[in-house]
């Protein structure tokens, strides 16, 4: 919850000083960084899903990787929408905050979903991969 408050304050500050060139520069760097990181994590997840031997390990990669990379990309989107808004008024900030809400939702929803999947897998007795078993 604290992060949200911090993020809202940050947005307020940015929105006031949007036209200052240095703020523009920092925003650009931030957007590019989070986009890059997000894409990297997505790539890592898909590799993980393909390479990992069995059900549980694949889910481990998919669950974590997805949530993080989505959050990062969404962060980049919200900042970008702030930066590129033609006129700065409450609708653009509202759009940015809405994206923040989506981040929160994914932050809670996605791990629970992964947990549910794994628990269902565990209940239906899928045997986890042991080291000695040859990769099937």
């Amino acid at each position: 919850m604290a992060i949200n408050v911090l993020a809202v304050i940050l947005f307020a500050i940015i929105s006031q000083t949007i036209h200052h060139p240095t703020v523009q520069l920092i925003l650009n760097i931030l957007i590019m960084a989070s986009l890059g990181l997000g894409l990297f994590f997505f790539f890592a997840t898909s590799v993980g899903v393909l390479r990992f031997p069995d059900f549980f390990t694949r889910l481990h990669a998919a669950g974590k990787g997805d949530t993080l990379s989505t959050i990062l990309i969404l962060l980049a989107c919200s900042l970008f929408s702030l930066k590129s808004a033609k006129t700065l008024d409450q609708t653009t900030i509202l759009a940015a905050i809405k994206i923040l809400l989506i981040i929160n939702f994914i932050f809670i929803g996605s791990p629970t979903a992964t947990h549910a999947l794994i628990e269902a897998g565990y209940n239906s007795e899928i045997d986890p991969w042991e080291n000695n078993a040859t990769r099937n």
């Binding site: 629970t112 947990h115 549910a116 628990e119 269902a120 209940n123 239906s124």
Partner: peptide, 10 residues
């Protein structure tokens, strides 16, 4: 087959 899931976390 599936038991009624009363999984706390969910």
């Amino acid at each position: 087959s599936a038991k009624a899931n009363d999984n706390l976390i969910i």
